[in-house]
Nucleic acid binder design. Sequence first.
DNA 1: CTGTTAGCGCATTCAT
DNA 2: ATGAATGCGCTAACAG
Lengths: 347, 347
Amino acid sequence: MKAYGSPPTLSDVARKAGVGITTVSRVVNGGDQVSPQTLQRVKKVIQQMGFIPNQAARVLKGERTKIIGILIPSIADPFFSTCAEAAQQIARANDSLLIVAGTNNDPRLEMESIRLLLRHSADGLLLVPANDQNSELAAFLNSMSAAAVAFDRPVFSSRIGSVVTDNLEAAYRATQHLIQHGHQRILCLCGESQLYTLRERISGYRKAMEEARLPSLVDMNVKDYRSAEYAIESHLSSDFPPDAILTLKNSTTIYAFETLQKLEVPIPQKIALMGFDDFELAGTLRPSISVVQQPAEDLGRVAAELLFEQILNRHKTKRVSTPKRGSQIKLESRLVLRASCGCKVAS
Amino acid sequence: MKAYGSPPTLSDVARKAGVGITTVSRVVNGGDQVSPQTLQRVKKVIQQMGFIPNQAARVLKGERTKIIGILIPSIADPFFSTCAEAAQQIARANDSLLIVAGTNNDPRLEMESIRLLLRHSADGLLLVPANDQNSELAAFLNSMSAAAVAFDRPVFSSRIGSVVTDNLEAAYRATQHLIQHGHQRILCLCGESQLYTLRERISGYRKAMEEARLPSLVDMNVKDYRSAEYAIESHLSSDFPPDAILTLKNSTTIYAFETLQKLEVPIPQKIALMGFDDFELAGTLRPSISVVQQPAEDLGRVAAELLFEQILNRHKTKRVSTPKRGSQIKLESRLVLRASCGCKVAS
DNA sequence: CTGTTAGCGCATTCAT
DNA sequence: ATGAATGCGCTAACAG
């Protein structure tokens, strides 16, 4: 029950065990080249004193920190926390710890966090860049020595690889599906249209509409429930009201559903609904909501795996071989067809 | 665009600036006792070389790491990720980083993670102990020099303070509310009854039932959707079917709702439903679900604040004044009355 | 097999 | 106002 002394060091152990500190070090690191007896004795003393190696000292000697950082807009966001969970699993598998920092999509916070992570000599960074066109960020990432992988959104003009969903394709297929149900006036709803993911999704929507020779109808002013309600009410009372809605993100889908529910607009009879991003109760709501399901877990997992690949290579070769410029991995989404799009209409 | 050299050090900067390393150190740490001209020059060189102080070296010199760890069952769990988000905010306010580790409620994983965190000299630990009676854990926490605060669940027989919801009181009031609606046969549903929080909630339920001279009816075999369905079907077809259900955790509430929906049992007319833990769409489902709303954010925030209080004191006094034994802070919950309990029955 | 020694980057005396 | 020297805990030569 001893407490609050500074933690025991190698030399504390060495003294108590009557050996040199190198021997203790060897024992701690696997015990090669140590006689069985010494091994036993030293192990016992280590146990007894509760010795824990000091990582800072190891790092100072040039070892990896075995810490990686992950920068996500919000830890509380189910999508990103799922990514983080997966990343943490991979980190653990690589004997590493994961530092999580919320950026709130703020480039300043993001930069600050990266700097802080670098002070701590993080081996690598996983990041969801607040702004994919941020050239300052790109330059900084290029110049730093830590490994890095972007996910969910790429970082343009940088050597940083990325793992993203094929947003365009997913939105394209979702829109096509609504069209196949016979819908002609499909309203595309979202906010924050400056985000890479949303831009891609809008493109996918437009592509499908254009191919079907239907007019695109995009409203990007939805930020919260109020604005969603306002937008939907406006469109419904227009001369050519929509007969379907495609929402481009989780929260927008929910706002739209709540609005339609409140207005007692029958889904999908009067208005069909298709969302981007699955959510826990999408299948439990009545009607159940059809959505594009992103592989959130895979996003985090693959990004982390890629990161450790880099880290391990880097450590092996000391000097990195020319890293291939920002290779991008695209993951497929899945269209989950439930009732709100018109499939499986409950009798 | 220089890359992959080892990062510049104090002495690199010193050489380039033509000063001693002490001077550079001073500049980095506020620039006192340095002439304005030197200050300028050194600052410029620092900027230019992209010098970033090496935290490991600082730590080795006895400084705090400015890293705290948080151990939660799962990062992807909305409740805990909300706590983590709050904790991270407090960490940031204290210029610290947050390492998140998922324990999966496994004492072994938990212990392993704590050890790892300690190697990294984390200044403090925030933890949701997998088992509140774990004496090995208690002993270890008592003997270590890092600060620590438990949240959501306490650690018994330890000096570790804790921040928890008043689970007993909350369940007590929720049950009372159902009783006031006239329900007599209230079924209490959950799984993992060994967890502190669930034990407390069961006690609260029992207390309310006993006070009302009603028979307690607890089924703790609900782990997933299937078991929930099985349990509910069994109870419904018994001689004395319940007229209300109190679920003790988030997922159980959802399983119960889905089962009742599937069986087309009208809520709350035939069976009322009250859940523990709020969730995003509780108000959107039809009927909307009444729940006990825990102050998840406050839990994380208060725990983190307490932790930094300890850390700061500890650092100031070098030796800790006798830490008061495991003081416990209890936070109040809020009963959110929606439709499923019988309030606000939609006409 | 085992021990001695030299730094890793930095903050900190203590001189100047 | 400035700098040289010391040591934090550890690993990796090197020497026995």
